[in-house]
Amino acid sequence: MIDIVDLVKQFPGTARPAVDRLTLSIPDGEVCVLIGPSGCGKTTTMRIINRMIEADAGIVRVGGRDIMQVDTVTLRRSIGYVIQHVGLFPHWTIAENVATVPRLLGWTEARTEARTDELLVMVGMDPSTYRDRFPRELSGGQKQRVGFARALAADPPLMLMDEPFGAIDPITRGRLQDEFLKILRALRKTIVFVTHDIDEAIKMGDRIAILKDGALLQYDTPERVLAEPANSFVSAFVGADRALKRLSPIACATVAVPFAGVAPAQSIDGTASLRDALALMLETGEDVLAVRSGDQWTGVVTLAAIRARTVSHRSHESAPPISAP
């Protein structure tokens, strides 16, 4: 779907390239998270894809087409675009904001209106309540819901999302991550997602590309990035608690074994992560938790099973960066 080959971009007056011979391939329908410290080139790379920034060298192909062969306006209208501060048009209603790209594309009024209502429902904003409101009447989370709907309006196969939850409070952020991910998966969108938050990357990404100084250090699934960091920078970047992080994307239901023996004193929902299960075990002193699906107990998850998931498969583990006690 997206092929990036030997991409180079150096801004005038800077000592080194922002993007330095980056090569990356993102399959259809996957969420690729670009992550790294400030100045690593993640946002620059993303913005080159819809030509908000022009590269100095290298090739970017979207759906097999070289982006330089497509005129910028046509290209951008075919790619969803979500930014941290949303950038809703304050003088337009919510419905008009969502209808931005359909109107640019000259859709009929009826089709645009139907699509707008459909999207507002999808992002959890009741159309009859919000259609005619203005952006200043919305909370930060609601604004980003509208921003997301606006980006999806013309059903682009590719979405670029630049720290979409960066300015949102932690509780709302968690809920939006879950909801947006569900929508993106259901619609089979290909996503380039920029963040500096490793937990968000692990949660949202099918693959994580870790960048530093414009170069790609590792491009792997979240599990492999956590289990087998490519070098000491990556292992420091994902954090000393990466063993715990590895538990975050795993749902209890997926490791539950059939229930046998004495009924456990505590239970946990099957959709909760192993990290939550471990926390509950530490808190209650239990080694075994029942796994619930609705009101039904479907199995148990054990401390031993959790430990098995955190032990690295690598034989030559590099020393984790822990300071001396």
Partner: peptide, 21 residues
């Protein structure tokens, strides 16, 4: 606001459309 203009550009408005709309 620069974010508003950035969003307008990113969604594929032409220079003239950004100015007018």
């Amino acid at each position: 606001e620069p974010d508003v203009v950035d969003a307008a550009r990113g969604m594929g408005m032409t220079r003239a459309e950004i100015m007018r709309k």
